[in-house]
Structure formats: C-alpha cells, structure tokens
Design a protein around this nucleic acid. Structure first.
Lengths: 186, 186
DNA sequence: CTTTTCGCCTAACGTTCGTTAGAATTATAT
DNA sequence: ATATAATTCTAACGAACGTTAGGCGAAAAG
C-alpha cells in the first residue's frame, strides 16, 4: 500500500485529466501512467470511464457544493457573502479542480444528459436559497427579486474568476462589488 | 454546387459538433456525415482538425465579438447596456453557437495554449473599454472602478445565461439588474 | 497446510480515430 | 478538341482508444 489508497489516487489524477482535457480528451492510459499503476487497475476500481467521471461530479462536486452552502452566516450580510467568495481563493487544488469540473458540466460543456438534469435540479434551488438569506435585509421594494438575481449573477461571475480562470481576487474588491449590488440593504 | 459553398457548410456543421461534443469528442467522420460529403473533403478545405477549430475561433468568434463591440451607443447608458444584452437573445443559431464555443475557449474549457493567449489579450481590453463608455456617467467617486468591474461581471453572467445556457432573458429583467449596478449613474 | 480472496499485472481484443494515397469526375482554359 | 486545374471519391494506413481475458503472487480464511 503506497502513501494513499489507490482508488483515491486514481480519482485525484482523473480530476486533473478531465479538467485539463475534458471527458473525451482524457484517456484511461494517461491516468494509469500518472498514477503509476497498470491500465486495468482503473477497471478494478471503476467499471468504466463514465463511472469514474460520474463519481467525481455526483460525489465530489456536490459534496463540495453542500459544504459551501452550509457555511455559517454572520449577522452582516455583506461580510457573509464577501467571506463566502473570498474563501474560494484558499480552496485546496483538488477542491478547486473538482469545482471547476462541476461548473464545466453545469454549463453543459462536458458530461451528459443525466448529469445535466442533476445540475438543473440544483440550479432551481439557488435563487430561493439566496432569497431566504437576503429576505431580512430586503426592504420589500418592488425590485427585491431583481436584487437577488443580480447578486446571484455577480456571485457566479466572481466564482468563475477564482475557480475557473484561477485568478486571485482580493477581499476588498469582492466586498466593493457585493456592496454595490446590496447597497441600500442594511 | 449545392445551396451553399461546401467550405462554409463544413464550418457550420463543425461549429455544431465542437459545441456539442468538444474538440476531442468531435470526429471528422461525423462532420463529413452531417455535411453529406466524403471524409477527405474536410481535408481538401482544411489542413487538419485543429485548423478547422482554430478558424472558427480566430475568425468567426472574434468577428462576432468585434461586431458586438462596435454597436452604436445611445445617449442613455442603461438603455445601451440593456439593448446590448437583450439583442443576444435574437442572435442567429450559428452566431450563438460560435459565441458559446468562444466562451468555452475563453474559460479554457477547450482549445489550446495558443488560443488562450489570444483570449487573454482580448480580456485585457474589456475593463478599459467599459470604463471609457461609463466615464461620462461616473461621478468620480472612489468606487468608480468597482462599479465598472461589477457591471462587467454582471454582463458576463447575463451573456452566459443567454448564450451558453441558451435561456431567454426578458428585457425588463436585464434592465432591472443593470440599473441596480448603475443606480446613481445618470 | 491448503484454499480462497484480493490486489495487481502483461497482453491482447475489436473499434475508431486522424490522416493520406491515388484515382475518377467535373469544370475551366487554351 | 485537348490540356489543365479544381473537386470529389473509395480505400486504406498506422496509431490510439476503451475494454477484457487470464494469470501471478501475497495475504487471509478454513
């Protein structure tokens, strides 16, 4: 037994390859090479290529999302969202790659119909969840929902910068932008 | 000679395939099948697969971007940005697919190093360009640049909804969100 | 001590890929 | 009419792909 469980190491390397080369550009041989194991070992732990890909999205990605969504919320809504985004900067490389891969599937740039449906289900929960979070701070104006939508759009773009484009975003910049959208709230 | 130039038809079908299946998931055989021509005809007009992909990004995508960027600007900045985004809804299917493919490369979900460098060069021009547009409407506050950044982030997310996720966004929703970011300007 | 199970391997299967050789057909020019 | 050039084809190349058959050695179970 090497440093880590072989099954885990395969998945880690697979995340890397799927990320860099997409589903079709990734070969089992290349994964096996980087893991330093023989080719059929991949099939010993995963039935086939698709199952390996699916496990990364269904388990790793959604676990990560749920961990993120369960973050504690402070009493200041701007602080909360700022921290929520800023903390993505210090995600582990593995988590960042899983996140990136998930977004790729979310935008239907990779994966298949089945995964897309799961993503659609998740997406439906996004707006209501943030509406609940923001509710106490909204002034029951006629554009409350527009503010929630705008914030979610901003968050998506910020997350993409950090996770997909692999940029570092300073806390102050994040706070400024979120404050612009939420100015007037609290 | 059929309805259209064969070279053009190959490119059209290729855009579709690269879009649906990515670079590695696309095969020259499948393209030839859908074009209803023999396989080597692709090689008659394009030296290889990569050249076909590159032409779509380098010519079609950037032509589209430049067309977009050259849009006339009205005297009302919110009207202008609203129209800018809303008009994406009625892009032709071909243009939408080209746009989508370009964003895929922009996010380095497809394509290679060389295309990424071209994308990076383009990206550098985005913030300054919108700063110039917004300048007359900004009140020289200390968060002027933050407003520009926020707007660009919002635009990116709105564009992605329409072009990548293929949603229809109503003009009123777009206007509301842009107004939230630009409230105070003009 | 024997037998079964587990983790891992070498070698190969059949298929599909990008690409090309070489020839047939059609259009253009002389 | 004849020569040249532009399109298009059938057929195949070698390489790489996902996947599997079958066996080896060590550990665990009886």
């Amino acid at each position: 037994m090497l440093e880590k469980d072989l099954r885990e190491r395969i998945k880690e390397v697979a995340v890397d390859h799927f990320n860099n080369n997409g589903y079709h550009g990734t070969t089992i041989r290349n994964i096996a090479n980087d893991v330093n194991c023989s080719l059929p070992m991949i099939y010993y732990y995963y039935n086939n290529k698709k199952e390996l890909f699916d496990e990364i999205i269904k388990k790793e990605y959604f676990d990560l999302l749920k961990r993120q969504a369960a973050l504690l919320k402070t009493d200041n809504i701007i602080d909360f969202y700022t921290k929520f985004v800023y903390d993505l900067n210090s995600l582990s490389n593995y988590d960042k790659k899983v996140y990136r891969l998930g977004i790729k599937v979310y935008l239907s740039f990779d994966g298949d119909e089945e995964l897309m449906e799961i993503m659609d289900e998740w997406e439906k929960t996004i707006l209501p969840r943030h509406y609940q979070l923001l509710k106490p701070y909204l002034k029951n104006a006629d554009n409350d929902m527009a503010i929630v939508r705008t914030l979610v759009h901003l968050l998506e773009s910020l997350i993409e910068s950090i996770v997909v484009k692999n940029r570092f975003l300073p806390e102050e910049e994040i706070r400024e932008e979120i404050s612009i959208v939420l100015r007037g709230c609290e």
